[in-house]
Nucleic acid binder design. Structure first.
Lengths: 131, 131
DNA sequence: TATTTGTTATATTAGCTATATAACAATTAT
DNA sequence: ATAATTGTTATATAGCTAATATAACAAATA
């Protein structure tokens, strides 16, 4: 699989897994309807514990990105199913705020931050439409 | 002081202190050259331990936002002193990436995220120039 | 000179991260 | 139908971080 774990990172492993799965979806490497590998197989691939991957999957479910069918598997939700709720928008803004404010105080201009944001988009080779 | 601690938050107290001090600087409530309150007095104000505030101050120093003079106090660095380094820019982008990518996958458009970013700016009542 | 300052040290409690096993029940494959 | 696979749940352990609590030190300040 495409996930690469950095054990020395200050980012927890389960969080690394979560982020890279999200990134994989953003890249289009995984599409809505696709099933994620079982927690056991992915854990074996990554050389981590089953529960670590399981925690990541549940985090993805809580974010509204996948659906976990008990004793069956995890499926990536369609863009319709995961229509952006006001709560999600608020959460994104909440996550965005400290990063942007810190950037500002460090001397970054709005244009610089905007440019970085667009760079993140383009680095993922996203078509003009969106996800 | 203007800092409000949420004990139940998943954000550590020392991190809350750090963020709100940064926000205070962004707001212009605190300017370069100003001294931060002593770790003991701020800790007493917030009702937290001295070491918690001390950890926050050292985090701010590591970020390049303040200078701690041993056995004297902490001073907010000037905008010249904290000129944006390539490493800092890279760090900001690193912090920005997971937030933006998650927003995308949840269905937020580049315009929406851009709008949120500008909202963060305007909510802080920042003059056109910058900080 | 006395107070305040950040620093350093030690100790304790709580929670989170991650791993390790194990067993269960439902789903899926053979 | 049987066997294998699945997510779930439970228990236990080790290591780390967060936060608090004291205490003492030496330099800076009042």
């Amino acid at each position: 699989m495409f996930i690469q774990i950095e054990p020395q990172s200050d980012v927890p492993i389960y969080e690394q897994v979560t982020r890279q799965i999200i990134e994989g979806i953003a890249r289009g490497e995984m599409k809505p309807g696709d099933t994620l590998p079982s927690v056991r197989s992915l854990a074996a691939d990554l050389g981590v514990n089953m529960h670590t991957v399981n925690k990541s999957y549940h985090e993805l479910e809580e974010k509204g990105i996948i659906t976990i069918r008990a004793k069956s598997g995890a499926i990536i939700r369609s863009t319709e199913e995961r229509a952006l709720t006001p709560e999600q928008l608020q959460q994104i803004e909440k996550n965005l705020k400290p990063v942007v404010v810190e950037g500002m105080v460090l001397g970054a201009t709005a244009e610089q931050i905007e440019h970085m944001m667009k760079k993140v988009f383009s680095d993922l080779q996203i078509p003009a439409e969106g996800v």
